[in-house]
Each structure stands twice: as C-alpha cells, then as structure tokens.
C-alpha cells in the first residue's frame, strides 16, 4: 500500500505535514532536514523543487527557492541526495514544484526517478486538471505516485466533487485565497469554508495548508480536516544560527505542543 494511504488509514487526525525547499539553507541540507523532521514527529514531508518563478509562493518560500538555486540545486542532484533516504525514513514523502523544471526533466523520467527514490506523491500546482486526466494520469499511476490536487475557497462545489473523484491520496485545501506565507489566525470566512468542505463528506482525507504557522492555527485546522501543512513558518524557522536538528525538533514540538 502507498505510504500516503497507509498514513491516513492509521492516523485519522492531527496529521502534521511539513514543506521544505530542497537545497535550502545549504545545498546538502535536504536529506538531513527530512530525517530530522521525521524524528521530531512530522507525519509527512513535502520536498519543494526550487523554481526561479514560483508564482503561488509568498516571499519566504520565494527567497528559499532563490537561495537553493544559487546553492546549485537541480532535480538531478535532488534525486541523487534522496537515493539512500528510504533506508532511514519511513513516513510518506511528496515532491512539490512547478511544472516547467519537471517538463524539462521529462514527466516520465521524473516519475521514474521519484519512484526509485521512494517518493509517494506529487504536487504540481500549475498542472491543469484536464491535462492531468488526458495525458499524465496513467504515467503517475504506472509509478505508483499519488497526484495531489489543490482546492481554494473559490473552488466551485462541482469541481471539488470532480477533484475528489479523481484523487486517491488526499486533497490539499488552500486555507485562503492567497499565496503561501504566514498570517495571523483564521477569519470567520475561512472557518465557514473549512466547515463547508467538512460537511461535503468527501471520500478523500484533507490537509489544510497556507497560513498555518503556530500550535493554535494547526489545532483549528485539525478540527476541520485530518491535518495541516506548514511551509513558510518552517522555512523561516531554519533561519539564523544554531544547531539545525535542535531548531527542527523545537519547531515540531511548538506546533504539536508535546
């Protein structure tokens, strides 16, 4: 069974998924960060493929992407860094990035390398649903990769139903009409949206992402979904001096309040 399905089967709530940018803060940080996150209690990890023009990302992830590219990160190198990781890490791993670097690498080649590295799922926010269904669904299936779709507060109900129908891992619920990044708390409109989606009784589990940065926002998100995704707040937590493993441990503990 795919590790993503297994996770949601074994754990119904309070799932913590953390996003990190590959090659940030240092070129060879990626494997270390993944191991430290798994050790510190993260349930799933999204490995961000850096891109020069990340249009759905706020300043924190933009800067980490820039840094990673300056450090020399490429998809080829990333796959090399991941190759032995599965000996130590058992939680689900997801690759997240923009379409162009993946297309230049070759979609089939990308999926093959993902599967060799033990990747469980892929998020490509700018790959349109219809193109996925027409051209790429079979490729992802061939390599046993779950393709994860996003929904936002503006996504129409019939489209959410369609996305639910074609998904078989989880649905990434974008918490607000926004790019990635830290905000303070949730508005009433956001809570209404969380409730509305929760009441739709979708067949796929949901994780809420964008704007989750603290124990409080994480807990609220977990009330309306199976868990939450943290990106910018984690990337920010890696800033500055200090033992990185300790920073990661502290970060996870702060969110989970262990």
């Amino acid at each position: 069974m795919n590790r993503i399905n297994k996770l949601f089967q074994q754990k119904q709530g309070n799932i913590l998924s953390v996003y990190c940018t590959a090659g940030y803060p240092l070129l060879d940080s990626t494997a270390f960060i993944i191991k430290a996150l798994a050790k510190a209690g993260a349930d799933m990890i999204e490995i961000g493929i850096p891109f020069s023009d990340p249009m759905a990302d706020g300043p924190v992830i933009q800067k980490s992407s820039d840094r990673a590219l300056k450090n020399g990160m490429t998809l080829n190198l990333l796959f090399e860094q991941l190759i032995d990781l599965r000996k130590e890490v058992t939680i689900p791993l997801i690759m997240m990035g923009y379409l162009n670097p993946v297309m230049q690498f070759g979609m089939e080649n990308f999926c093959l390398r993902c599967s060799e590295a033990g990747i469980d799922g892929v998020i490509l926010p700018d790959l349109p649903l219809d193109l996925y269904l027409e051209e790429y669904k079979s490729v992802f299936a061939k390599y046993h990769l779950k393709f994860v779709f996003l929904i936002s507060p503006q996504t129409a109900e019939n489209r959410i139903r369609l996305i639910d129908k074609v998904s078989n891992g989880f649905i990434y619920m974008v918490s607000a009409s926004s790019t990635t990044g830290v905000r303070k708390g949730f508005s009433t409109a956001q809570i209404d949206y969380f409730e509305r989606i929760d009441n739709m009784k979708l067949r796929n589990p949901r994780l809420i992402g964008f704007g989750i940065s603290s124990h409080d926002t994480f807990s609220v998100a977990c009330r309306y979904a199976q868990g939450a995704i943290i990106g910018s707040a984690f990337v920010k937590a890696l800033h500055g001096v200090g033992d990185p493993e300790e920073k990661i441990r502290k970060f996870c503990h702060r969110i989970l309040k262990k």
Binding site: M55, A56, L99, P125, D126, L127, P128, L131, F149, L150, I151, S152, Q154, T155, A156, R159, V174, S177, S178
Partner: peptide, 12 residues
C-alpha cells in the same frame, strides 16, 4: 498556449 495555473486562479 493553454492555461497552466494553480487552482487559486482557476475561478478568475
């Protein structure tokens, strides 16, 4: 051509 956009832009 096409419309390679994240879901957040889809309704617009």
């Amino acid at each position: 051509g096409g419309a390679f956009i994240p879901e957040m832009l889809y309704p617009n």
